[in-house]
């Protein structure tokens, strides 16, 4: 019994020990609220933000909402109570972040949204977001050129993300836009909803390959779902390198470690890369500028880039996935 009490005290002390030790010596504290850390992209972004904050001698107070908008709301309120100097949020979605921005506005604390813009409202914030539409469009345009090297009609498929996610919709629109000019030769035979879920993606792409065995172009709205596509292709014996006959032209978005490996091994044609270095630096800079009273545009667009077999060597250092140890 006495043991149990001792455990509680120990746990409390341990937790306390995990707290920010540099308090007092820093230039300020920034609250960073992520929706989830369950993919490498978010982890890389979190590490990028942490590094940028450290560079400026700012403390970081982190919170993770585990996909729950309400919890995120509570976490942002806690930041406000704690009188942080600025807030960085990766919102769960566009709508639920609005009341959080309002609370921050009311408290006069600058708030910057990372990666996802808010729904239209009177609340004031800055969003740093990759230009999902153009990056996707450029990537898919490259994929289309590769596919059309062979003669005849081609079939294409897309794995779509969560339709509640603005970025997923922008990527889908970029995909459609890029294939419009080739409407005569490339037919989109399958649009697979995944809700960013690997199991759903696997089931969807397996069914699509069953129904349309000759699909020759697949675009994945996030590299996170690449393993699902790889396993579906493998089971049909079509997981082949670029240049091999009946290779399926394959492209993704994000530029994670899996994509990097597949590019170097020659299985992946291209992926659209969000420039995490740019995004994190711009986000932290925006918070600092807002705190200093400077004006910052409402949206900071990350132009991103397409990485493919042709430019792999030059741009790989800017690809965040190339730096993730696997």
């Amino acid at each position: 019994m006495r043991n149990n009490i001792a455990w509680i005290v120990l746990a409390a002390v341990m937790l306390a020990g995990c707290g920010d030790k540099t308090a007092g010596t820093s230039a300020g504290t920034i609250g960073v609220a992520f929706e989830t850390l369950q993919t490498e992209y978010w982890v890389a972004s979190r590490d990028g933000i942490a590094a940028e904050l450290k560079k400026r001698n700012l403390n970081m107070l982190e919170a993770i909402a585990d996909g729950d908008a309400n919890r995120q709301f509570e976490q942002v309120r806690n930041f406000i109570t704690r009188r942080v100097d600025g807030i960085i949020v990766v919102p769960k979605d566009a709508q639920t972040v609005v009341p959080m921005i309002r609370e921050a506005n009311r408290a006069g604390i600058p708030i910057v949204l990372f990666n996802r813009p808010p729904a239209k409202s009177d609340a004031r914030s800055v969003t740093v977001v990759a230009d999902n539409f153009s990056i996707t469009k450029d990537t898919v345009a490259y994929l289309a050129d590769q596919a059309l090297k062979a003669p005849g009609k081609r079939q294409a498929a897309i794995l779509i993300g969560d339709l509640g996610d603005i970025n997923a919709i922008a990527r889908r629109d970029g995909f459609e836009e890029a294939l419009k000019p080739h409407a005569g030769r490339i037919e989109i035979v399958s649009r697979i909803p995944t809700e960013w879920n690997q199991e759903k993606a696997l089931a969807g792409i397996t069914n699509a390959l069953q129904a349309h065995p000759s699909i020759d172009l697949i675009f994945v709205s996030s590299d996170l779902l690449l393993p699902s596509v790889v396993s579906a292709l493998k089971s049909r014996g079509r997981y082949l390198k670029v240049g091999e006959p009946s290779h399926v032209v394959l492209g993704g978005f994000d530029g994670d470690a899996t994509a990097y490996r597949m590019l170097t091994e020659g299985y992946l044609d291209a992926t659209g890369v969000q420039d995490v270095g740019f995004d994190t630096a711009a986000t932290v800079q925006a918070v600092v500028d807002l705190k200093a009273g400077k004006t910052v545009p409402e949206t900071l667009l990350d132009p991103g880039f397409v990485i493919h077999r042709g430019n792999l060597a030059q741009v790989a250092p800017r690809m965040w996935g190339a730096g993730v140890r696997k």
């Binding site: 149990n4 746990a11 937790l15 995990c18 707290g19 403390n59 982190e62 509570e74």
Partner: peptide
């Protein structure tokens, strides 16, 4: 528990573990 872990700025990776431990105790 949520509030104090949040205000402590405990690393993301520790929050769930810590919460599990405290609830178990």
């Amino acid at each position: 528990l949520d509030n104090s872990l949040n205000l402590l700025g405990v690393s993301f990776f520790l929050v769930f573990t810590a919460k599990g431990v405290v609830i178990l105790v």
